[in-house]
Amino acid sequence: MSFRSFCKKILSISLISILCISILSACGGKTTTNTTAEQEKTENSSDNQNTLEKIKERDKLIVGVKYDLNLFGLKDPKTGKVEGFDIDIAKGLAKKILGDENKIELKEVTSKTRIPLLNNGDIDCIIATMTISEERKKEVDFSDVYFMAGQSLLVKKDSKINGISDVKKGVTVLTAKGSTSAQNIREKAPEATVLEFENYAEAFTALKAGQGDALTTDNALLLGMAKQDPNFRVVDETFTEEPYGIAVRKGDTEFVNTINEYLKEIKENGEYDKIYEKWIGDVPKNEK
C-alpha cells in the first residue's frame, strides 16, 4: 500500500465513521425531540393524568433523594437505611397523599442525574437540596421554598480562609458537577480554580486529601460534613441565598398545589419545626 492510498484510506474511514455517528445521533436526536415534545403534549393535556393520580394508582410515592449528604439524605452503609431532613419531608408528603408515610420509594439522585431522572419518569418528584433557580425553572416546576440555605465554604480548622473575599488567585475550590455552587463561585471569585467532581462525597474526599483549599456548596450540607469530620469547619459568612424547593415535571400543576398545601400544613402544625430541630438544630429563622 502506498503512502497516498494510506492517507486516502484514513480520510475515508474517518469520514465514514463520523458520518455514521452523525446519522446514528440524528435518529437519536430526532427521537429525543419527539419524546420531549410528546411528554409536553401529554402533560399539558390531561391525557396522561397528573402525577398525583399515578401515585395513588400505584399506591406509592417515588422520590429522588440524595444518598451521600449527612443531615439531608445519607445512606447508612451498615443498615442500608436512608435518613435525613429531605427524607422526613418526603415521608410526610407520602402520608399527606397516601395516608401512610411508609408508602414511599426512595431513589438515589445526584445533582447531575436528578433532572434527567425526573423528566424520564423514574421519580415523581425531587427532594434533594435543590435550589430554585431561573435556569432550572425552564426544565422543571418548583414548589414553595421548604428550606432556606446559603452558599458557604468548608475549610480546614486552621485555614486562613474566612469568607469569599479570601478566595483569591491560587486558591482551589472543590464542588460537585451540575450544582449551582460552581456557577456562583465562578461569579464571586473569578480568579480561583474550580474543580468539579461527580458528587459531594468525592469532592469531600478530595478536600481531605489536600486536593483543594475549600469545598463550596450550601451551608446546610457543609454543616453535615463538618459534623462528620471535626478537622473541618464551615466559614460563617454565606454569600448567596439558596431557597430549596421540591421539583416536579413541568406542567404538573395539581401536584405542585398538593405539595404547597402540605408544606403550609406542616409549617402551621409544628411538624416542620420538629423535623428541623431533629436534623439541623436551631429553630428555623424567619421563614415563611
Binding site: 419524546t35 431522572l117 424520564n120
Partner: peptide, 10 residues
C-alpha cells in the same frame, strides 16, 4: 447511563 435515557432507553 446518562445519554440513552434521553432517547427513551432507561
Amino acid at each position: 447511563f446518562f445519554a440513552l435515557p434521553e432517547i427513551g432507553l432507561k
